[in-house]
């Protein structure tokens, strides 16, 4: 198939960027979206033009590295599919495709389609963990966890940290990402001891990193490649409220 591409080009974070148009005459419909970009880049190299930088690694929809806004949608038109798992058979011969980086205050553009997502790491560093010093664990079957609880925790833990939720949110909020991790850990018996502390610290880190507020647009859920649901946000809001109250009273006495 023949494609017309409009791609965001930006030399680095300090310089302004713009859309540049490219023609791509021959793409196999069995190719993935990123293979399509590879072909385009090869074509550019052969013409002596500098290829387009984009992030990717596993190309299996699990590492969370790929991060493209395709025709205005984070990860493109397919539900529950990362850009790397999107295949060209979902496009038509002659289509015009617009490709941009994630756009959010907390994710500055590094170059072309590459952004800096270290703000996510900061949120995890603040409290997105269960403290279990190496070698100090009890037997794994000591504490049974009911299957529905384990399954629910796993639903949240499936987050790949790609940042599509932030890119899709008109406020650039990281609530879905943060609540998925808080939800995963807060649900488990192992995570109970640090639950309040974790929730307060992660929310604080999220605000500090420059992510916006959540005003319930729900765009994040719609684009999430792992189908993380809004109820984790609701759960984190509850956990946060309880933690605040408990903290207030523990200080008071």
């Amino acid at each position: 198939m023949h494609l017309h591409l409009k791609i965001w080009r930006q030399k680095n974070g300090d310089q302004p960027g713009k859309f540049v148009s490219y023609e791509l005459p021959e793409v196999d419909e069995g190719s993935s979206f990123l293979e399509m970009l590879d072909i385009m880049n090869e074509q550019m190299v052969s013409k002596g033009e500098e290829p387009v930088a984009f992030d990717h690694d596993c190309r299996e929809g699990i590492c969370g590295m790929c991060s493209l806004v395709i025709n205005g949608e984070a990860h493109g038109p397919q539900r529950a599919t990362t850009a790397c798992q999107l295949h060209m058979r979902h496009f038509k011969d002659g289509d015009t495709i617009t490709i941009e980086p994630w756009r959010a205050k907390a994710f500055p553009v590094v170059k072309d389609l590459v952004v800096d997502r270290t703000a996510f790491d900061k949120v995890i560093q603040a409290g997105g963990f269960i403290t279990a010093r190496t070698g100090s664990a009890q037997d794994a079957n000591e504490v049974p966890i009911p299957k529905p609880v384990a399954d629910k925790a796993m639903d949240a833990a499936a987050c790949i940290g790609c940042g599509a939720c932030v890119a899709a949110c008109p406020n650039g909020s990281a609530m879905l990402f943060t609540s998925a991790k808080a939800g995963h850990l807060n649900l488990l018996p192992q995570g109970k001891a640090e639950k309040d502390e974790r929730t307060l610290k992660m929310v604080e880190a999220m605000d500090k990193a420059g992510f916006g507020n959540c005003t319930n647009y729900g765009e994040c859920q719609a684009v999430c490649p792992k189908e993380i649901t809004l109820d984790f946000i609701a759960k984190m809001n509850r956990d946060y409220a309880t933690a605040r109250v408990r903290k207030f009273f523990s200080k008071a006495c």
């Binding site: 070698g135 664990a137 794994a140 925790a153 796993m154 850990l185 488990l188 192992q190």
Partner: peptide, 10 residues
Amino acid sequence: DQMVAQGVPF
């Protein structure tokens, strides 16, 4: 044991 303690949802 270690991974379960850390919250890996096996």
